[in-house]
Design a protein around this nucleic acid. Sequence first.
DNA 1: GCCAACGTTGGC
DNA 2: GCCAACGTTGGC
Length: 155
Amino acid sequence: MPNYWLLKSEPDAYSIDDLARDTREPWTGVRNYQARNFMRDTMKVGDIALYYHSSTTPPGVVGIANVISNPHADQTAFDPKSEYFDPKSSPDNPTWVCVDIGFVEKFPRMVTLDEIKQDSTLEGILVAKRGMRLSIQPLSEAHFSHITSLAHQHI
DNA sequence: GCCAACGTTGGC
DNA sequence: GCCAACGTTGGC
């Protein structure tokens, strides 16, 4: 049984189209301990994630990715020229880890945050919670399935 | 651009 | 270990 997740990304930084082009990408740059712990401790190969575009108008879910690697050191933490450089992280004892994600699908339409908030079936979904800034969020299979079916539904 | 919410830092 | 200050996120 896979776990389900929601992955946030600003499309200016890395969009679903970028992932579709690259087909896979190490999910680097996570510098929040809770999000890191999800990747390090709970994510496993075969897990499935909704891909969410944040800081855009409107924000919303735009597709599906999957987890295709075990956790490994986030190399950007070792690069002094990277905006994600962290001198406290070393290859011997990496502070920050990431998993590789793969492209699964770009939805025919975005399911907007507003639509998610209006939908009573999605009650309790973390991304709709006020002040929720976690960039990697656990998701129920029911919520995953519902959003996926909305995305394939004409409106 | 504003600002609420939250996480992190650092002085004590 | 407390907590004020600060920085960041991200919707609006």
